[in-house]
Computed example of a mutant assay.
Amino acid sequence: MPPPPHDPDVWLFDLDNTLYPARCNLFAQIDVRIGRYIADCLKVDVEEARRMQKQYWREHGTSMRGMMTLHGVDPRHFLAYVHDIDYSPVPPAPELDAALRALPGRKIIFTAGDVPHAERVMERLGVAHHFEAIFDIAAGDYWPKPHQAIYDKLVVRHRVDPTRAAMADDIAINLKPACGMGMRTVWIRTEESVKRAVGIDLDHVHHQTDDLAGWLTDWVAQRSARK
Rank of each mutant, 00 (worst) to 15 (best):
V44R: 12
D45Q: 09
V46S: 14
V46G: 10
E47T: 03
E47P: 00
A49T: 03
R50H: 15
R51D: 03
M52C: 05
Q53C: 07
Q53E: 12
K54N: 12
K54H: 15
Q55L: 12
Y56Q: 10
W57I: 00
R58L: 15
G61C: 09
S63D: 05
M64C: 08
R65Y: 09
M67E: 07
M68H: 02
L70K: 15
H71N: 13
G72V: 07
D74G: 09
R76C: 12
F78D: 00
F78H: 01
F78V: 01
L79Q: 11
V82S: 02
V82M: 02
H83G: 07
D84H: 14
I85R: 07
D86W: 04
Y87L: 05
S88I: 14
P89W: 13
V90C: 04
P91V: 15
P91F: 14
P92K: 13
P92E: 15
P94E: 10
P94T: 06
E95T: 07
E95D: 12
E95G: 01
D97H: 13
A98Y: 09
A99M: 04
L100S: 01
R101Q: 14
R101Y: 12
A102H: 06
P104L: 09
G105K: 11
K107W: 10
K107Q: 12
I108H: 00
I109A: 02
I109E: 02
F110G: 00
A112P: 01
G113E: 00
G113S: 09
D114K: 03
V115K: 08
V115I: 11
P116Y: 10
P116M: 08
P116A: 10
P116R: 04
H117K: 10
E119I: 06
R120D: 12
R120I: 11
M122N: 08
M122P: 04
L125P: 02
L125W: 12
L125S: 04
L125E: 07
G126T: 04
A128Q: 15
H129V: 06
F131Y: 10
F131K: 04
E132D: 03
A133H: 07
A133K: 04
A133Q: 05
A133G: 05
A138C: 13
A139T: 03
A139M: 10
A139G: 14
G140Q: 02
D141A: 11
Y142A: 00
Y142H: 05
Y142F: 14
P144K: 08
P144Q: 06
P144M: 06
P144Y: 06
P146K: 02
P146M: 01
H147M: 10
H147Y: 08
Q148Y: 11
A149S: 14
A149Y: 09
I150N: 00
I150E: 00
I150H: 00
I150V: 09
Y151M: 11
K153D: 07
L154E: 08
V155M: 07
V156M: 11
V156W: 08
V156Y: 08
R159M: 10
R159I: 08
V160H: 01
V160Q: 01
A165C: 08
M167I: 13
A168W: 04
A168I: 05
